[in-house]
Amino acid sequence: MLPELNIPRENFVFVSGIGCSSRFPYYLNTYGFHGIHGRAPTLATGIKASRPELSVWVITGDGDALSIGGNHFMHAIRRNLDINIILFNNRIYGLTKGQYSPTSEFGKKTKSTPDGSIDYPINPLCIAISNEATFVARSIDVDVKHLSSILTQAAHHKGVSFVEVFQNCNIFNDGAFKHFSERKVRDDRTIRLEDGKPLVFGRDRDKGIRLNGLKLEVVELRQGVPETDLLMHDIHDPEPHLANLLARMEYPDFPVPLGVFRSVAKPTYDELMEAQVEDAISRSGAGDLERLLNSGDVWVVN
Rank of each mutant, 00 (worst) to 15 (best):
S21M: 03
D195Q: 10
D234G: 11
S16R: 03
F14Q: 05
P3V: 00
K109S: 04
L95W: 05
L151K: 10
F166N: 15
A128H: 09
N71E: 07
P226N: 05
I85S: 04
V144R: 15
H34M: 00
L289P: 11
G38E: 01
R186Q: 07
R9S: 00
H241L: 14
A154R: 06
E227D: 14
M74W: 03
N90I: 00
G70L: 07
E250K: 15
L230W: 02
R291T: 14
K145G: 14
S22T: 12
P124F: 05
H233G: 11
F201D: 05
K111G: 08
S21Q: 05
N123I: 02
L5V: 00
P121R: 15
G70P: 01
K111E: 03
L151S: 12
P252D: 02
R51Q: 08
L66K: 04
L199R: 13
D119I: 13
V144L: 15
S22M: 12
N123V: 02
N173G: 06
S117E: 08
G61P: 11
K158M: 01
D143N: 14
D143H: 13
E239W: 13
G32K: 00
L211F: 07
L292T: 14
I59D: 10
D115K: 10
Y27D: 15
A247D: 05
P198L: 12
D188Y: 06
